[in-house]
Structure formats: C-alpha cells, structure tokens
Amino acid sequence: MQQFSIHPRELGASLWRNRGLIRVSVRREVLGRYRGSFLGIFWSFFNPLLMLAVYTLVFGGLLKARWTAASTSKSEFALVLFAGLMLFNVFSECLNRAPGLVMGNPNYVKKVVFPLEILPWISLGSALFHGAISLVVWLIAYSLFYGVPHVTIVLLPLVLLPLVLFTMGVSWGLASLGVFLRDVSQVIGIFTTVLMFLSPVFYPITTLPEQYRPLLYINPLTFAIESARDVLFWGTIPNLYLLIGYLVAGAVVAWLGFAWFQKTRKGFADVL
C-alpha cells in the first residue's frame, strides 16, 4: 500500500509540485460557478458592490451606526464591517466546503496519481479570488470617500498568512473527517454561523470589557480581522509579536491537518 509523507517539508513541496494543476483547477472552478449566467464572472464584482452599497445605506443611513463614538461618517461603519466580512467569508467558504471536498470527487480517489491533498488548496484559491474582487470593491469605495488608501495596505498579505495556514489545516482535517462522518458538513454550517458572531465582524473588540478581550483572541479570526482593519482602514501597523505568534500557531495547525489527511487518505477508497 502506498505511503504518503507527513513531513512538514512535503506540505510546501506538494503545493509547489502541483502549482500548475492547482492554478488550472482554480480557474476552472471560478469560471464554472458562473457558467450559463448572463453576466458570467462579472457577478463576482457586482455581488460585493451591491452588498457594500446595502451596508452603507442600512447601517450608515438608516440605522446611523458608527464604529467609533467620535465618527460622523456614514460610510465608516460599512467599510470597517465589510473589511471584516471579506476575511470571514474566505474562512467560512473554505470550512463549509471542506467536508465535501473528497466526497464530491470520488473519481479522484480511485486515481492513485491524483494528489488529493491539493483539493483544499483549490477551494482556498477560489475563495481568495472572490476575496480579492471584494477587496477591489472596498478600495474603490474607500478612494471615493476618503482618498488614497494607506500605504500599510502592502502588509495585508502578511497579516492574512496566519489565517491562510489555519484555514488550510482545518480544511485538511475536515476533508478527511467528512469521508468517515457524514454529519460533519451539517455541524460545520452551524459552527460557522455561530463563529461569525463570536468574531469581531459586526462590532469592535473594544465593546467587550477589557478583562474578556484576551478570550476573543483564542479565535484566530480575531487577529486577522482586527489586523486587516488596521492596515486597510486605520493605517496602522499590527502587533508584530501577535503576528509572529499566530504565524507559528497557524503553521502548526496546517501541518497537523495535513498530517491527519495524509494518514487517513488510505481509507478513503474503502469508504467511497
């Protein structure tokens, strides 16, 4: 029986070795999502544009919500909220799809030559594409309301890296569990809904009593969302010590998820 490496080096080696296949698969998946629609891939731009317009109208205009007490801007709440939702949507899309990645591709399981471990990368690539389109919409809106974006935006990939690693680790674990436990997909749907309200998406972390704020940082989304807002909207540099800590933790989670997937993939064909 074929043995699959769980060495941490194999995690990066597999990504590099199959980069061409991942790129083609991501492109096919993105285009396939809009195949047959009148506007096609342009929906990936119109959807976030419409949502941002709705957030601005509802929260800024009708509810007169303000992210900070001193704010007088109607657009601030919508832009800060949308910045957090962009990250959460990438994370939740990957998690919700993860349990069905292997189950939805039984033909790949039967082909020994197909690298099953790249399926979560393909899912992440698709989610990041739509996240990038949302970011473009956000930047256009920010430029219209506030002018030239902050130079700290160049740090965005760096603050997103720990979340990407966390997402991949959890996706590998769920992709494997989804083969053996069919209820996982239902549980994850509920979990991501609850997680959205346990993350500082709709509210600033400062609304919590100071003694409880460290508990919120157990959630890896908290640092990613707060740091993304820092570099995008507020123009400040995130806490480097926290960034390094989350980066290390994310790398560990990614390797654990990858190792679990590699160890259990030998049983996929028997179950399917």
Rank of each mutant, 00 (worst) to 15 (best):
E93T: 14
N96K: 13
A141E: 08
W16C: 11
T56I: 04
T236Y: 08
Q2Y: 12
D230R: 05
I188H: 03
L21S: 10
A259N: 09
N107W: 02
T236C: 07
G169P: 01
S185F: 05
R19G: 11
R35A: 13
G147N: 11
P120W: 01
N219H: 04
I41E: 10
F45L: 14
P238Q: 08
W255K: 07
V109A: 03
S123P: 01
S71T: 13
F268D: 01
R182H: 13
S123K: 01
S185T: 14
A175V: 02
S92P: 05
E29D: 15
P238E: 10
A175R: 00
E29K: 13
V154A: 14
I133F: 05
A251H: 05
A254H: 01
T222K: 02
W121I: 00
V248T: 07
G173T: 00
T222G: 05
L247W: 13
E117G: 06
A175N: 03
L174Q: 02
L119S: 02
S126C: 08
V90I: 15
L156M: 10
S71H: 09
V137E: 01
L174Y: 01
Y146P: 02
V164M: 14
L208R: 06
S185D: 10
R9M: 11
P149A: 02
W255F: 10
G104N: 05
F197L: 11
S14D: 13
L221Y: 05
G32R: 04
V109Q: 03
W16H: 11
L174W: 02
W138F: 15
I237E: 08
P149S: 03
L87M: 10
R265E: 14
Y146V: 06
R23Q: 12
W121G: 00
S126Y: 11
T207W: 13
R17W: 03
S227L: 00
V148W: 12
L139N: 06
F45E: 04
F191H: 01
A249H: 02
A249G: 09
V54H: 06
F180Y: 15
W260L: 13
R66V: 08
Q2G: 00
M168R: 03
L177A: 07
N239D: 15
V151I: 12
V54F: 13
D270R: 11
H150Y: 10
I190Q: 06
D230V: 04
S75D: 12
V170F: 14
Q262N: 11
F45I: 10
N96M: 15
A259G: 07
S185V: 15
W16G: 13
K64P: 05
V109D: 09
F191V: 14
Y142V: 08
F77A: 07
L87H: 07
L87G: 09
A70W: 04
W172T: 02
I6N: 11
N89R: 13
I118M: 05
L160N: 02
L208F: 13
V248Y: 03
P162M: 03
V54P: 00
V80I: 14
R33Y: 15
L195M: 15
G100F: 03
V30F: 03
L208G: 10
L81W: 07
M86V: 10
S73F: 09
Y203F: 14
L216K: 12
L242Y: 12
Y142T: 10
F82E: 03
V194M: 12
A175P: 08
A224I: 06
F88C: 04
Y146H: 11
L165S: 04
P204A: 06
F191K: 00
E210H: 12
E226V: 07
W67G: 05
L156T: 04
